[in-house]
């Protein structure tokens, strides 16, 4: 019990500090993350030999400060994660709530759409779309946002079905309240805590997928410092300088872990708050 709380706090700490770093990136970075210095390429981080003062995490293959790129990378990861979750959350929640509330044919259609979405090979479609349209920040966000909604839809649908049978929904119907009001004011606030948990899971997934796309050269285009792109660009040097791949790799792992821990904690906490 106390260990669970500790993990949740750890998650909050990781996500919170990453968010702060991302927001204040311009004030925290020691160097311009895009500034190349071909004379100072592949400087080692501070704990290895061959380190250069002023570059704590060393420099990359073009001599750009690795710490600054890492900090700006946090910005990109969180921004993509947030935008994808907003986009997929809107789609999935709307579909799920409509299906769960109205039932019958509407629900059958919603179920069919969810089943169709589950049959789509996520990575392949994302790859195909991005390689056809060309990679850009917006394309990555839209592709992932339009694909990652199914869990929102499933959770919103089942929880809506539970809530809609409660008497307060019947009381609102009898009060003459509009369907719009019932969906937004009676149902949504009472399923929101489930959706928040889904949102954290989807955010972690979106960040990982963006990294994967970037790694394949189909994510955010260079020279934007995405963590996936950093790993991708570093793979040619990993045998001689393994830290170039380890630093963004560890950052990605820690952030995704933090988001998942926070999600677990929110699930416990929101669940307990409701039961109280």
């Amino acid at each position: 019990m106390n260990l669970r709380r500790l993990f949740a706090l750890l998650g909050l700490l990781i996500v919170g500090s990453t968010a702060i770093i991302a927001v204040f990136a311009p004030y925290l970075t020691p160097h311009d993350p895009f500034l190349q210095n071909l004379d100072g390429r592949m400087a080692a981080p501070f704990w290895l030999e061959g380190t250069v003062p002023g570059h704590l995490f060393g420099t990359d293959q073009l001599g750009r400060d690795y710490l600054s790129r890492l900090i700006y990378g946090a910005r990109i990861s969180l921004l993509i994660g947030t935008l994808v979750v907003i986009c997929s959350g809107l789609i999935g929640t709307s579909l799920g709530v409509l299906g769960g509330y109205f039932g019958g044919r509407i629900d059958a259609v919603v179920m069919f759409v969810i089943t169709c979405r589950l049959a789509i090979p996520l990575i392949l479609v994302a790859l195909t779309v991005v390689s056809f349209v060309g990679s850009s920040f917006t394309v990555v966000v839209l592709t992932l946002g339009l694909l990652l909604w199914e869990r929102f839809a499933v959770v919103a649908r089942t929880t809506t079905m539970q809530v809609r049978n409660l008497d307060y929904v019947a009381a609102a119907q009898a009060s003459g309240a509009s369907t719009w009001h019932i969906l937004l004011r009676e149902i949504l606030p009472n399923i929101a805590h489930h959706l928040v948990v889904v949102a954290t899971l989807e955010m972690a997934l979106a960040i990982l997928l963006e990294a994967a796309l970037s790694f394949l050269g189909l994510g955010v285009p260079s020279p934007l410092p995405s963590w996936g792109l950093m790993i991708s660009e570093a793979k040619d040097y990993m045998y001689f300088s393994p830290w170039v791949i380890m630093i963004p790799g560890v950052a990605l792992f820690v952030l995704v872990l933090g988001i998942n821990l926070l999600g677990d904690g929110l699930r416990d906490w929101l669940g307990a708050a409701r039961d109280a």
Partner: peptide
């Protein structure tokens, strides 16, 4: 305006997310 309900379980017939004023005021708002 003509017909209104009172349900069995006052725990499930009041939306836990609303204040008492909003709950009682809902038919008026509508």
């Amino acid at each position: 305006r003509l017909i209104q309900p009172v349900f069995q379980d006052p725990f499930s017939s009041l939306n836990p997310r609303h204040s008492i004023a909003d709950l009682v005021g809902l038919p008026l708002t509508a």
